[in-house]
């Protein structure tokens, strides 16, 4: 943890702290806000801070994709739907059986702790040492090369998944329109 105090390092730390704080805060915000619109906005913030973190980890392409695809397309869609549905306050924040709440908190806490412990135990001392990477690491060229050589199958299957989702979306949309015409 104690590293050479040069300017690059300190700057990195400062950026990291800021992005980390924003990430955590927006995460909590997403889960706790009552208004889904605000939650969605908080999620956009979360995605943005994550993009910053990705940049710090030399994953430039992923960061860009995150902002463009996730924050740009997916969240816009979310906001569309939330706006379309309108503001419905009658949904309670949480509730249901007490054991559900207690169990939920316990399970989430357990998972968090276990992930930390597991990774900590298994990784041993190796986590402190990171490989040196060159400038091509995380670049679009590198990602593209990997997609088209080592992980071609994943690439193709992912495109099929997207196609299926698109079809599903169309079907879901058309079904409800037909049902509405019948019931109207």
């Amino acid at each position: 943890m104690i590293v050479a105090a040069d300017a690059g390092n300190i700057l990195t730390w400062i950026v990291w702290v800021g992005a980390a704080f924003a990430c955590l805060a927006s995460g909590v915000a997403v889960v706790t806000f009552r208004n889904p619109f605000y939650s969605a906005l908080a999620l956009i913030g979360n995605l943005g801070s994550l993009a910053v973190l990705y940049l710090l980890l030399s994953a430039e392409f992923v960061a860009a994709a995150q902002v463009l695809v996730y924050a740009g397309a997916v969240m816009v869609m979310f906001l569309f739907v939330i706006a379309y549905i309108g503001h419905r306050f009658e949904t309670p924040w949480a509730g249901g059986p007490t054991w559900q709440t207690v169990g939920a908190v316990a399970a989430a806490a357990a998972i968090f702790i276990e992930v930390v412990v597991a990774v900590g135990l298994k990784a041993g001392g190796r986590l402190s040492h990171s490989e040196k990477v060159d400038r091509a690491f995380g670049s679009p060229a590198e990602i593209g090369r990997l997609f088209l050589t080592d992980h071609l199958l994943a690439f193709e299957i992912t495109s099929i998944v997207l196609l299926v989702a698109a079809i599903g979306g169309v079907i879901l949309g058309s079904h409800s329109r037909a049902a509405e015409e019948v019931s109207a």
Binding site: G103, A104, A108, A118, K122
Partner: peptide, 25 residues
């Protein structure tokens, strides 16, 4: 019939399995 119960079951199972994996390996 509640989704949240099923999700809780999933999460709980995950927690238990994580312990098992840590212990075994």
């Amino acid at each position: 019939g509640l989704i949240r119960t099923y999700a809780l079951a999933l999460a709980g199972g995950l927690a238990v399995l994580a312990v098992v994996f840590i212990a075994v390996k």
